[in-house]
């Protein structure tokens, strides 16, 4: 174990966001007009480079019912695998209008969430290890006591996925499938990816302790 001698205070404990999360984190979802800027609306701007994609899906509970009151956030690198953060060594090469963070909620009727973005590039970690293109995901809702973290990878990145160090840690191997966004249309392979997130059940998504 790593020594934690620099730890003087203890992290504030988590609590569920409850059923009314939209009032605070997505007032636009319920027609509540308080703030001028919707900070979570645009992951990328018009000048951001890369392949424009939509990633969408549903969130399913342990009874196979739709979770219609969840909030979901994405954090991602740009098409060249760069994060908008000072600790990314290539931070300076980013497009000005690329933010890389966004927020969505599951639709009150259909239970569907979606992000419009660009497909991230492969990411070189600090130790030189390459990670396959992925979206970092964080999910909160009523009944979720602490935010759930996971990643979404892409079905068309067969080679990169096979070498990805996080995917390769997942056993049994078939659970890796739970993180894979597939083409909505397998034949046409348009820019439309889908992935369902299962909180529980036979196809429970792999969540990460980050």
């Amino acid at each position: 174990m790593m020594a934690q001698e620099d730890k003087i205070l203890q992290e504030t404990p988590s609590q569920t966001v409850g059923p009314y999360v939209h009032t605070g984190l997505a007032p636009w979802a319920i027609g509540l007009d308080v703030f001028k800027t919707d900070i979570g609306a645009e992951i990328v701007g018009p000048k951001s480079k890369g392949r424009r994609i939509t990633v969408s899906g549903r969130i399913i509970d342990g009874a196979d019912d739709l979770v219609r009151d969840a909030l979901i956030e994405v954090w991602q690198a740009n098409a060249n695998g760069i994060y908008r953060h000072v600790e990314d060594p290539k931070f300076g090469e980013l497009e000005k209008d690329f933010r890389g963070w966004g927020r969505a909620w599951t639709n009150f009727e259909t239970g569907k969430w979606s992000f419009q973005t660009v497909k991230p590039g492969p990411i070189k970690d600090r130790d030189g290890v390459m990670h396959a293109p992925h979206l970092n995901i964080w999910i909160v809702a009523r009944g979720i006591n602490i935010g759930l973290s996971t990643r979404i990878y892409f079905v068309d990145e067969t080679d990169a996925n096979a070498k990805d160090p996080v995917l390769n840690m997942i056993l049994p191997e078939q659970r890796r499938q739970t993180l894979l966004a597939k083409y909505r249309d397998e034949k046409l392979k348009t820019n439309d990816y889908v992935v369902d997130i299962a909180l529980q059940g036979d196809h429970e998504t792999v969540f990460l302790n980050t």
């Binding site: 509970d61 342990g62 019912d65 600790e87 006591n145 529980q200 429970e204 969540f207 302790n209 980050t210």
Partner: peptide
């Protein structure tokens, strides 16, 4: 019905985790 039954997979932090908006 909303709690995962599997333990989460523990990662060492990669650049995806130490960065943020």
């Amino acid at each position: 019905l909303r709690s995962p039954k599997h333990a989460p997979l523990t990662l060492g932090q990669t650049i995806s985790e130490i960065t943020g908006p």
